[in-house]
Design a protein around this nucleic acid. Structure first.
Length: 280
DNA sequence: TCCTTCCCGCATCCATCCTG
DNA sequence: CAGGATGGATGCGGGAAGGA
């Protein structure tokens, strides 16, 4: 293995994979409805005042001030303001590959679409900041400001949800640790990182994170890391890099060890694999 | 929920050999 | 001769059980 690199990259690097769509606020009229309908993006609602009802195909959820709910793409929803005390809503719509990860970390899903936040907390403040940024089109920096505001809002939302009442059956914190571990591997596989390094970066013991990882993923972290490196190597094998260059690129300073692992994983030595697959 | 200890399997390292 | 594969020794990582 190459010498240990002192700088461990951040454990979550996929923040670029979230895209802001739109945001807004509306004081609804009595009995005002939307749907049933579907969205092609994620949409989070926050209730400032009043009350109303949010429905999925499976359940009906009465909601009031301080509550929130969210929609996932492709599912059928409808919602309706109360006839006597209609709600005032704010919403933010977004999409991206990283969204499911963050929602899972927050314990939100189609089956569990509800959350509660303090009326004057940072969640509402960051939501308001995003709506303000969306209203100001006279700026070249508007897209960056909106994206930054969206991250701030999601971070505040995660903090608010995780600081809330703890459900003894809730597994989101474990999912969070496992997601962090997966992200660590995908970010640092090209260095000579160990599972000890990963545990240190997450602030957990090596044994504990390995246990969570095995339960969630099905294989130990060391095995997952090895397999991940081999898959990356197989991709690089399609190009013109030498076996030695590929081994360095996926975190092995010793091509001999790399060759052995490659053969164990795929059944062929690297050179043999390249010949069979018609590579360079 | 998180950590510790013990033990064993396996990944890694080094030396050597093989192939084109 | 350079690039790549194999064999044996060693240390790290995983599993199990239990404690704080």
């Amino acid at each position: 293995m190459q010498s240990r690199h002192p700088r461990i990259k951040h454990t979550v690097n996929s923040c670029q994979d979230i895209k802001f769509y739109y945001a807004g606020t509306e004081a609804c009229e009595s009995g005002q409805t939307w749907g049933p309908g579907v969205k092609d993006h994620y949409k989070i609602f926050y209730i400032h005042s009043g009350r109303g009802t949010f429905r999925t195909a499976a359940a009906e959820y009465p909601r009031s001030a301080g509550d929130g709910f969210f929609l996932v793409p492709g599912e059928l929803y409808d919602y309706e303001a109360d006839a006597h005390d209609p709600w005032k809503l704010s919403w933010v719509a977004f999409n991206g590959e990283a969204v499911p990860l963050y929602l899972e970390q927050a314990g939100l899903s189609y089956e569990s679409p509800l959350f509660t936040c303090p009326p004057d907390g940072p969640t509402r403040q960051s939501l308001q900041a995003m709506i303000e940024a969306d209203r100001n089109p006279d700026s070249f920096s508007r897209p960056l400001r909106l994206t930054a505001a969206l991250y701030t809002f999601l971070a505040a939302l995660l903090d608010a949800i995780q600081a809330g009442p703890v459900d003894p059956n809730r597994s989101s914190i474990k999912s969070y640790y496992v997601a962090q571990a997966l992200d660590f591997i995908e970010t640092n596989y090209s260095w000579s990182v160990s599972i000890e390094d990963m545990a240190h970066a997450l602030g957990l013991s090596r044994k504990y994170i390995a246990s969570l990882f095995k339960t969630a993923v099905g294989v130990p972290p060391q095995q997952y890391l090895c397999r991940y490196r081999m898959e990356k190597a197989r991709e690089l094998m399609q190009g013109s890099l030498s076996i030695k260059e590929i081994s360095y690129s996926v975190g092995y300073s010793d091509q001999l060890i790399f060759s052995r692992m490659f053969k164990k994983t795929f059944g062929y030595a690297p050179k043999e694999y390249r010949r069979k697959s018609g590579g360079v």
